[in-house]
Design a protein around this nucleic acid. Structure first.
Lengths: 207, 207
DNA sequence: CAAGAAAGTAACCGTTTGGTTATTTTTGCT
DNA sequence: AGCAAAAATAACCAAACGGTTACTTTCTTG
């Protein structure tokens, strides 16, 4: 199979990004080594700098990919005419599922939070996440209209909860697993936690 | 004021640890620079290595301090004969309060989770945290006995929730603040979140 | 095919890193 | 006072770091 020059170039770029995702997820920006990324992708370090100006720029690109990764999954999950309670339950379960399958994503976001979320322009981040926010807010409002959600529920707090409880579980899993002497990231435990969290939120909404 | 040799030595050690807490909290293990710690504590780098064998050992010590820090606060919070519901509410609120006042602690723990919790021996960690675990478990059991907590409540899940929701809020605050265009770490917002979380857990227990 | 552009390589560079050596100063004890 | 142990300093080191230079090979296109 003959590839054109620019196709090969794109392939190289992807190989670099793949290796970069691994390295940055594992060690963060400070810990990641440009040489390690070059070697892992089987290319020369010079080419890495030809494709991505600097370590910083490469890191930003990796992060953007990670955000787009989950944003795509979130979009799939948004169903216009689903019942509010089911929709929120579904969203929470989807998030647990996604994070179980994508441990690298968890780590990249944790590093980024420690970097105080400076590596990605705020407006790009908002653009990616705003639809999800709006989706959950609307479901809550609809629920109130239908009478399945209490009027006094603070939608701001629910949005925060729906979007962070799953992540919190995984990001603390190592410490907590050590403490509980149990592998909390097993499929079984994750499923149970997912069920608990969505149930808890729903009970609060309906209470 | 004349100090004895070993007193001065202890003071130097403390100055190093103080600077190390700052540096490691800010930049994590990889990002932290031994030279920076030495300079910040106003001592010679050689003395740092005299007191703490290596960068790794120093980091482990810093982490242990951080854990002892909150463990002390947790012990204060444990009241033997308090009502189970009040006790759990109180514990959650205390945790929010502690984390609001100790942002360095949050960062140190986040780094450590990214290190997959390898820097501290598991048994030391368990020794520090087990009392808290047991306290919450007992309160739930007591609640069930008194009839204020539902029988079907999974105590394992509640322990996990009580111990991680506050932390989750703070550790994602930067990303979430950017998304919500609002400073979530203001005293006001933290208080509201604390109230919401404890209320949510309690509602679930009683439901 | 010619020739220039793009892709790729190896060797190198200045700086910074964690850690050490050799040496001097201060302290504690008799 | 005298002397050994502990505390402190400055200068240093090999390795590793992000990034670059100078050069060769491969591809595209008139």
């Amino acid at each position: 199979m003959k590839l054109r020059q620019y196709e090969k170039s794109e392939l190289t770029k992807e190989r670099i990004l793949e290796a970069a995702v691994d390295e940055f997820a594992e060690k963060g920006f400070y810990g990641a080594r440009v040489d390690a990324i070059a070697e892992a992708s089987g290319i020369n370090k010079r080419m890495l700098y030809a494709h991505f100006e600097s370590k910083e720029k490469l890191y930003a690109k990796v992060l953007l990919i990670a955000y787009e990764w989950i944003a795509a999954r979130e979009r799939e999950c948004m169903v216009e005419d689903e019942d509010p309670i089911d929709a929120i339950k579904g969203f929470v379960n989807m998030t647990f599922d996604f994070l179980l399958e994508n441990p690298k994503f968890i780590r990249l976001l944790m590093w980024e939070n420690l970097n105080r979320a400076v590596s990605i322009p705020k407006d790009e981040l908002v653009k990616l996440k705003e639809p999800t926010f709006e989706y959950i807010r609307q479901k809550i409002r609809l629920g109130k209209k239908l009478g399945t959600v209490r009027e006094s529920v603070d939608e701001h707090q629910i949005v925060l909860s729906v979007m962070s409880f799953a992540f919190a579980y995984f990001s603390n899993a190592h410490t907590m697993s050590a403490l509980m002497d149990r592998n909390l990231t097993s499929r079984e435990d994750v499923l149970r936690r997912s069920e608990f969290i969505s149930d808890m939120i729903v009970k609060y909404l309906e209470a």
